[in-house]
Amino acid sequence: MVRLNLLLLVVLAACALGLVTSQHLARRLFGELEQEQERSRQLGVEYGQLQLEASTWAVHARVERIASRQLHMRVPEAKRLQIVRPEEAAK
């Protein structure tokens, strides 16, 4: 009887220590989860900011200005245009 009780005591102690460890582990993992979620929020914010930046660089007026002034591009004149219709191209 005494031996059984002692055995149960040891098992109990082991369980208790196990509980403490797993609780600790769970909290550490939760902390990591929190950090990752925060990072995901940060990345979301950064994505928004990059989208904004992309839109700002791609503002049509700016693209047009660069195309015409720096790259000297222009809309072709009428007489230099040729329209190719799909049915003609197929022949």
Binding site: V45, G48, Q49, Q51, L52, A54, S55, A58
Partner: peptide, 9 residues
């Protein structure tokens, strides 16, 4: 799909 208005913190 071009962004026209975006909120940022």
């Amino acid at each position: 799909g071009e962004a026209l208005a975006i909120s940022t913190p």
